[in-house]
């Protein structure tokens, strides 16, 4: 099986450790994952802001980069949703039949990470070790656009050492919403404040989710509040092992924090 990593533009530029964690995790599970160098972005920022014409060349870049792979794995519910549901809309608008045909090929082969692990590889215990108190936020696009259901929780429950606590009002949106976070910053922050409060109520040390963009928003609020809760992508927890834990003084410090090693 030829498996490609769609790392996503946000992870590529801002959260490379998430991409590295996916690579480590998949290799550990025996998957030889490839990173097609021509990839850029799924086009969602343009589509969700209404710039459909601008999204056409971006979608074309996507389908060209991932043509021929059996599975496209992405550590983002939102980007998987974009590929599966929005690319066809963009292609139809472009009037380019070849693009529509290419989208029909790539769309069904695009999997969010937890879907790929559970549905394609058939694993829930990925051999991870993460001895911390963690709460999980199901991001809207994972939950409602993709319907990943309980897959992420099942993966987390199988992690050794973890204490998983329920997040109150878990399914309510955090308020990120792409350009919504800027165009309607006040409302976005009001939603984020409630999400942050619920996270704090759990007493968790780590908030985990399947989308770094949502985590950047919630984590940015928690940081501003000096709440003492850090955010981590699901992939990074699933990639953690007893060995990697012993090298760090806590989750996401050092390499996984994206800064220079301390």
């Amino acid at each position: 099986m030829r498996v490609a990593l769609q790392v996503t533009c946000v992870n590529d530029a801002m959260f490379p450790d998430t991409g590295k964690a996916v690579v480590r995790l998949l290799r550990r599970l025996g998957v030889d994952v490839d990173f097609p160098r021509a990839q850029t972005c799924c086009g969602q920022p343009m589509v969700n802001t209404g710039y459909l014409d601008e999204a056409v060349p971006v979608v074309r870049t996507f389908v060209d980069a991932f043509a021929g792979y059996d599975a496209i794995v992405t550590p983002s519910g939102s980007c998987a949703g974009s590929a599966r549901h929005q690319h066809a809309i963009v292609a139809e608008r472009s009037g380019d039949r070849a693009l529509a045909a290419a989208v029909a090929e790539t769309a069904p082969k695009t999997y969010e990470l937890s879907e790929f692990l559970v549905d394609v590889l058939g694993v829930t215990d990925v051999g991870a070790y993460f001895p911390h108190r963690v709460t999980y936020h199901p991001t809207c696009h994972s939950l409602r656009m993709l319907g990943v259901g309980e897959r992420p929780q099942r993966l987390l429950e199988a992690v050794r050492g973890i204490t998983l606590v329920d997040l109150p009002e878990a399914t309510e949106c955090c308020g990120f919403g792409g350009t919504f976070a800027l165009k309607n910053a006040d409302t976005s922050v009001a939603m984020g404040a409630d999400k942050a409060r619920h996270v704090r109520d759990t007493g968790a040390e780590v908030l985990v989710a399947g989308d770094n963009s949502c985590l950047m928003h919630i984590g940015g609020m928690l940081s501003r509040q000096r709440a003492g809760v850090r955010v981590m992508h699901l992939a990074e927890i699933l990639a953690s092992t007893a060995e990697s834990e012993s090298h760090s003084s806590g989750p996401a410090v050092g390499e996984r924090a994206g800064g220079p090693a301390t």
Partner: peptide
Amino acid sequence: GARDLPAPPEESFR
């Protein structure tokens, strides 16, 4: 205004 923003990493995934 209400959210800290992580500094971009020195090295991208790519």
